[in-house]
């Protein structure tokens, strides 16, 4: 099976700092997760495979062609970057339409594609609202919409679930899996194993600028279960949520921050499933944002290196 992305002895330096160190890998068709803690080299890898950066050494090919200086390849790629950056004065529809127009579509075609994409990410109702007025989760979804509006063969998503509420998170995971099932490919990065595992079992583990492992990694799954996992939940009724969490034995500790509760759990899968059910039922008020700090995965990597 032809590789969707191939890196051949790729290194990237930023002056004296190494971003990626002699990486050789192939990404097969389907959904692949790129997993690593903050500063591991995920972003550098994502920027290299999206042609934003040029490799200092080695070669990167995407869909069989070199990506750097090859703009025509972007007809076949959709990219959702990590940064929360937009033209805030535009509405979601205007923004996605304007970006799709850059792919050569006419105004009418672009508007139709943008509407379809916004509908696909469940933003049809907010399409006419200014992006500046969107919640964090809506902003993530409108970024997804611009990436998939032109129906690319390969979708590259950099931390796509960050800041989403549980419902949007579940929908987005479903959307990514559907995209993979439709015969297209997805490369998705995250610092949360639980997120990646809910989309794919094909994982690239990156740390300190190197690929530690690739493939179907069950051992990592087992290891992470032994480590407490921190989840930040921003919600209307944090006290009520905390009371609900306390009755479960997987919750190890909790603390409150302004409008949020920070929970340490021993079983992230169970915790996220319960959180999603609570958000869907709405019985404890709205849950606005769920994030997990980078140091979760860092702890696992440290544990791995020690063992």
């Amino acid at each position: 099976m032809a590789a969707i992305i191939a890196a051949d002895h790729v290194s990237k330096w930023y002056g004296q700092v190494i971003g990626l160190n002699d990486v050789t890998l192939t990404v097969p068709p389907g959904i692949t997760g790129l997993l690593g803690p903050n500063g591991a080299g995920k972003s550098t890898f994502m920027k290299l495979v999206t042609g934003q950066l040029k490799a200092s050494k080695g070669a990167v090919t995407v869909l069989g062609e070199p990506i750097w200086g090859n703009p025509s390849l972007y007809f076949r790629i959709g990219f959702c970057p990590e940064q929360d950056a937009f033209y805030d004065r535009m509405t979601g529809l205007e923004w996605v339409t304007a970006l799709v127009r850059l792919n050569g579509a006419t105004e009418a075609e672009a508007a139709a594609m943008a509407n379809r994409a916004l509908d696909y990410v469940d933003l049809a109702d907010a399409a006419g609202k200014k992006i500046g007025a969107y919640s964090k989760g809506m902003r993530q979804r409108v970024k997804m919409a611009q990436a998939l509006a032109h129906d690319p063969e390969l979708l590259i998503l950099d931390e796509p679930l960050g800041g989403m509420d549980p419902i949007a998170r579940r929908k987005t995971i479903r959307l990514i899996k559907e995209w993979g099932r439709s015969g297209k490919s997805v490369l998705v990065s995250s610092h949360i194993l639980h997120e990646i595992e809910s989309m794919t079992s094909n994982i690239l583990l990156v740390n300190q600028g190197r690929i530690l492992a690739e493939g179907n990694i069950h051992q990592i799954r087992d290891l992470i279960d032994e480590h407490p996992h921190t989840v930040y939940v921003k919600a209307d009724q944090t006290r009520a949520l905390a009371r609900a969490f306390l009755s479960e034995d997987d919750v190890l500790s909790m603390k409150f921050e302004d409008g949020a509760v920070i929970v340490q759990t021993a079983r992230p899968d169970t915790f996220y499933a319960r959180l999603t059910a609570l958000a869907a039922s709405g019985e404890l008020g709205a849950i606005h944002e769920v994030t997990s700090p980078d140091d979760n995965l860092q702890a696992v990597f440290e544990y791995l290196v020690k063992s």
Partner: peptide, 15 residues
Amino acid sequence: EDKTITYLFTRPIPR
């Protein structure tokens, strides 16, 4: 500076 350049540089147009 606004970090919006990514959207323009990952479209099928020459930089």
